[in-house]
Every structure is written in structure tokens, then in C-alpha cells.
């Protein structure tokens, strides 16, 4: 799923390791999140959003992702 984790992390001047330690996951999980290969649990998404003082909706580009999913759904019908 499209997200702004990398963008917000760089803007905050944090390393992947620092972010991983703040949210209690491994740095590989952060790498995977930034590559959009892995979707986090709701709690992890909230934790990351809290670190960057933003909302989960903003962090995970809710509108764009919803539009994309709706389009994919329509294609299936």
C-alpha cells in the first residue's frame, strides 16, 4: 500500500534504525514498509503516525489507496 513513511522519516531527520527502535520493530520491517512490500498492523500504523505527529489517514494516503482499490474492484466486476 502506498505510504509516506520514508518521506516523513527523512523530513524528521531519523534513520530507519531510530524509527524501528521508537516503534518496537526490527529495522527490516521499516525497510519493508518504506518499499511498500508490507502493510503494518493497525497498532504499528498508529505508532508510526504518532512518532511523526500525523494521522494514519495521512501516513497511509487513505484517499489515494481507496481510489486505487475501488478501481481494482471495478475492474474485477
Amino acid at each position: 500500500m502506498k505510504n509516506r513513511v520514508k518521506e516523513l522519516r527523512i523530513a524528521a531527520g531519523m534513520t530507519q534504525q531510530q524509527l524501528a527502535e521508537r516503534v518496537h520493530v526490527s529495522s527490516r520491517t521499516i525497510i519493508s514498509l518504506e518499499k511498500e512490500q508490507y502493510n503494518p498492523s493497525l497498532l504499528l500504523a498508529y505508532r508510526i503516525a504518532e512518532v511523526f505527529q500525523t494521522s494514519v489517514e495521512e501516513l497511509y494516503c487513505l484517499r489515494e489507496n481507496r481510489e486505487l482499490e475501488d478501481r481494482n474492484y471495478e475492474d474485477l466486476l
Partner: peptide, 11 residues
């Protein structure tokens, strides 16, 4: 502990 509890590792 973090490695063991990591949600991606568990998945």
C-alpha cells in the same frame, strides 16, 4: 526480544 516479537517476522 524485538526481533522475536516483530510482526513482520511473525507473518
Amino acid at each position: 526480544l524485538t526481533e522475536d516479537l516483530d510482526e513482520r517476522n511473525r507473518l
